[in-house]
């Protein structure tokens, strides 16, 4: 453990098409919002360097296509993920109901060692459209408790458009993932960022 130079956190954003995954990522990493995002084809990622508890952490945030699921993208996208951000749209109840299947599918595909305690966070996006809200805050609260009674999942209501809650949400997921990572002792010794997840795996990590 002599050269723990850089900590890499691989974070995957999942959720239905059009809930604002790309917008959230761009707001967090680039502080930008556009009304003209296009449907994500395949996947995309951005990285952001942050400091948590005096540690330099590189967050590699993966934005996925809402319609895609995993099958056509290959293992590269989800293997070695350290955390997962589930997104729904507060004006679209179906996107909320789909959270279960996104979570289940992620766990099935990524196969983390300790699925019960895998770091998830839930974001209810588009709070700037409060008057069109169709998913009451209470509902998501209950959902988070139902998933894990001892340690409910954290949730945030966000607006990628107005930057509401975005920074806090990603900070939180980074902290949770880092904590979990320390518990599990996952560190990536290489200075380069490994997109296959192979290095994370081979360095004695989570799998």
């Amino acid at each position: 453990m002599a050269h723990r130079k850089k900590v890499l956190l691989k974070v995957i954003i999942l959720g239905d098409s059009g809930v604002g995954k790309t917008s959230l990522m761009n707001q967090y990493v680039n502080q930008k919002f556009s009304n003209q995002y296009k449907a994500t084809i395949g996947a995309d990622f951005l990285t952001k360097e942050i400091t948590i508890d005096e540690k330099l952490v590189t967050m590699q945030i993966w934005d996925t296509a809402g319609q895609e699921r995993f099958q056509s993208l290959g293992v590269a996208f989800y293997r070695g993920a350290d955390a997962c951000v589930l997104v729904y749209d507060i004006t679209n109840p179906i996107s909320f109901e789909k959270l279960d299947s996104w979570r289940d599918e992620f766990l099935a595909q990524a196969g983390p060692r300790d699925p019960e305690n895998f770091p998830f966070i839930v974001l209810g996006n588009k709070v700037d459209q409060e008057n069109e809200r169709r998913v009451p805050t209470q509902k998501i609260e209950l959902w988070c408790k139902a998933k894990n009674a001892q340690q409910p999942m954290s949730f945030f209501e966000t607006s990628a458009k107005e930057a509401t809650g975005v920074e806090e949400a990603f900070q939180t997921i980074a902290k949770i993932a880092l904590q979990k990572g320390q518990d599990d002792d996952i560190f990536v010794p290489a200075a380069t960022i490994d997109l296959s997840g192979a290095a994370t795996k081979s360095s004695g990590g989570c799998c």
Binding site: L73, G74, A76, A199
Partner: peptide, 8 residues
């Protein structure tokens, strides 16, 4: 070398 896969 950079481990960049074509899917990305």
């Amino acid at each position: 070398t950079m481990n960049l896969l074509p899917e990305v």
